[in-house]
């Protein structure tokens, strides 16, 4: 199954019945999958919106009434959605937003890239907020993390972003769908479904009282602290005896893993740390690895974005090098292997 369709199937199995989207390559298969399975079905909604701006606001509406709702796009369209994401975050509404990244800035290229890391992990729109950001690196993980995204969104009343890329969306790999949500999900508390038997409620973000807004911001960040504590995840591969650890996410991590296996075969002690939650970033895990390894290489398909989180986590401990290919260029594992090997020898780790 292709990655885009796998997200669609996983979303439906997670109880998502509302999808709103606007065509953009390389994620159209997802929109089309949802059109096939959600249009003209009772209790389901599929709308091809007139723009991404409209689509994210439709998600906002569906979330207001308690639906598990999703939208998807690729980089230029995600920029348009930022306004809506800011409102979702402010109103504490769950939603799942998929970004199958492509090269940028501007219209860029339709090839896979990782240049929206900053946008995704720093909130992205205006105001002081965060979203949970998940970084899958295989078709199987696209499916698994989509299911997790809906759970996290509901649990913490927060928009969750799945940060994939063009290659993950387009490629086909075997995939297994693990669990299924109950056919009828309980109606989320605080859904605005009419004030029957209760006083009417308001969902709003605007207030003329700064201290009221400050309290809202504080409460958001209290929740963010909780999320950091409970939901941070990452994968490590052969880090125990490693003298050099590569840190990469998504498709880049997958390429790096191939490169590391090649280097290991030649006796170089190299490991991999792959953040799965990009926000919250696995700071503690990076620190833990730094206890035994002094040399890091951050590899990204951009000019260096996640590296800032790595540096913040390390706080001066260890040495961090960087290798990046921007613009939608997908480096081969052999290229990354060369980079790693050179660094390994340069730093006298052999």
């Amino acid at each position: 199954m292709d990655g885009n369709s796998a997200i669609g199937e996983a979303a439906i199995r997670a109880g998502c019945r509302c999808y709103f989207g606007y065509p953009i390559t390389p994620q159209n298969e997802l929109t089309e999958y949802m059109a096939m399975h959600l249009s003209r079905k009772k209790g389901c909604a599929f709308v091809q919106a007139e723009s991404e701006l409209a689509a994210i606001n439709m998600v906002y509406g569906a979330s207001l009434v308690g639906a598990r709702a999703m939208t998807s796009s690729s980089s230029p369209g995600i920029s348009l959605k930022q306004e809506g994401i800011s409102y979702l975050a402010a109103c504490e509404l769950p939603a799942v937003i998929v970004n199958m990244q492509r090269g940028g800035p501007g219209l860029g290229s339709i090839s896979a890239a990782q240049s929206d890391y900053f946008q995704a992990t720093r909130g992205g729109g205006h105001g002081d907020y965060r979203t949970i950001v998940l970084g899958p690196s295989s078709v199987q993980e696209l499916a698994d993390l989509t299911m997790r995204a809906f759970e996290l969104a509901d649990k913490y009343k927060i928009p969750v972003i799945i940060l994939g890329d063009g290659v993950l969306g387009q490629m086909m790999e075997p995939v297994e769908f693990k669990k299924e949500a109950p056919a009828e999900l309980p109606i989320r508390e605080n859904s605005l479904r009419g004030a029957t038997g209760r006083p009417s409620k308001i969902v709003k973000t605007f207030t003329s009282n700064p201290s009221e807004l400050e309290e809202i911001n504080w409460s958001l960040f209290r929740r963010y602290t909780l999320i950091k504590k409970q939901e941070t995840t990452c994968e490590t591969f052969m880090v125990d005896d490693a003298r050099l650890v590569v840190i990469a996410f998504g498709i880049a991590a997958r390429i790096a893993k191939g490169a590391i296996k090649t280097a290991r075969a030649e006796g170089l002690k190299i490991g991999l740390l792959r953040p799965i939650t990009l926000w919250p970033f696995p700071e503690e895990q990076v620190k833990e690895v730094a206890k035994t390894t002094g040399q890091f290489l951050v590899f990204e398909m951009n000019m260096g974005q996640m590296i800032e989180d790595v540096q913040l986590a390390l706080a001066g401990q260890g040495e961090v090098a960087f290798y990046g290919r921007p613009g939608g260029v997908i480096p081969a594992p052999s290229e990354v292997a060369r980079v790693i090997t050179r660094l390994y020898y340069q730093k006298g780790l052999k």
């Binding site: 065509p23 159209n28 929109t31 059109a35 096939m36 249009s39 003209r40 091809q48």
Partner: peptide, 17 residues
């Protein structure tokens, strides 16, 4: 995919029916 100008009844990848 469907455009705003797609004719009624016309099948596109987002109007599979």
């Amino acid at each position: 995919q469907m455009a705003p100008t797609t004719l009624c009844g016309m099948k596109t990848t987002t109007t599979p029916y």
